[in-house]
Design a protein around this nucleic acid. Sequence first.
DNA 1: CTGTAATTGCGAATCATTCGCATCTACGTG
DNA 2: CACGTAGATGCGAATGATTCGCAATTACAG
Lengths: 170, 170
Amino acid sequence: MITQEQRVRIRRQLAEVGLRATPQRLLILAILEETDEHLDAEAIYERARQWDAQISLATVYRALAKLKEAGLVAQRYFARDHRREYYEAVSKGEHYHFTCLGCGKVIEVRTPRIAQARQELSEALGLEFTHACICFEGYCPECAAKRRRGTLESRAVPRFTVGNGVTIDD
Amino acid sequence: MITQEQRVRIRRQLAEVGLRATPQRLLILAILEETDEHLDAEAIYERARQWDAQISLATVYRALAKLKEAGLVAQRYFARDHRREYYEAVSKGEHYHFTCLGCGKVIEVRTPRIAQARQELSEALGLEFTHACICFEGYCPECAAKRRRGTLESRAVPRFTVGNGVTIDD
DNA sequence: CTGTAATTGCGAATCATTCGCATCTACGTG
DNA sequence: CACGTAGATGCGAATGATTCGCAATTACAG
């Protein structure tokens, strides 16, 4: 699953940020790199266990904390459950997430307005932005239509398995 | 502390949204109305206890949940601690919060860009926004300067007693 | 090859929030 | 204005994601 070149590259990335290249960290980074989803610690742990049956959940949490600190992974929060942290490899361009409350689908949206707001606020107030947490919620076109027709299962308690809020680090 | 007119007005507001006007709810709403801060359940509980020594923390949580559902209070998340929920009375105009990582100060910022982004995304993708969670972090002008000079106490673990992320409901 | 500081695994601890349940109470109705 | 009942409350216990303590390992500079 982890290719040789990937292993080498990740080792270098870790060295660059001054982190020891432990097999657990290599594994976690590889897992985050090969998925499009936003995984929480538990999900990462489950996947990691398939390659390293001994890995512990605490290690996953600690590795993620270090990797986040080093800027290799980004932590995300999901709109409806801010207690659960999700992670993704830092690589995709700046984007935000819109979660449909009807079907749970997550739509990635892109807009320059947020960066613009930061720029303007920065200039106007002298603020130095380092971090932002942005997430949207509502209904996708299909669910919005259903809702207007009254055929949307209310309180379907959607399971947000994929997306969550987006946190942008500079 | 709770004026007669306030009491009457809150009663009406509660009736309008179909909630029973219990003394606990009146108290909690009054507390949220008379402060500029963003309080978490514990803080609200502490204040409420001064007027109703018997009130329970669980009641505070349940009341806040109902009031939020009814649109009378808004729930906020703070950037550095998304596990703790803060609340404020719904009244102030749309604004966002910027938290200084140096001194912990919270600056309310206003910008039309977020609404603009929602509008544009709504038109372009047919999304129906109902909710957004926005919060910024960084350094205020003073702390930014100190940081450049290297005189900013690093990792001062600022206590964010006042502000937190902003959640906007329609 | 060695010494050592960083890291791991394990289970226990945190701690904000939620729940279960028995007891009250707000408020529409008669 | 007393009643009945759905809805609220208080209490303590439960949840559940994340963090901690500590002894055992291990990455990696010298």
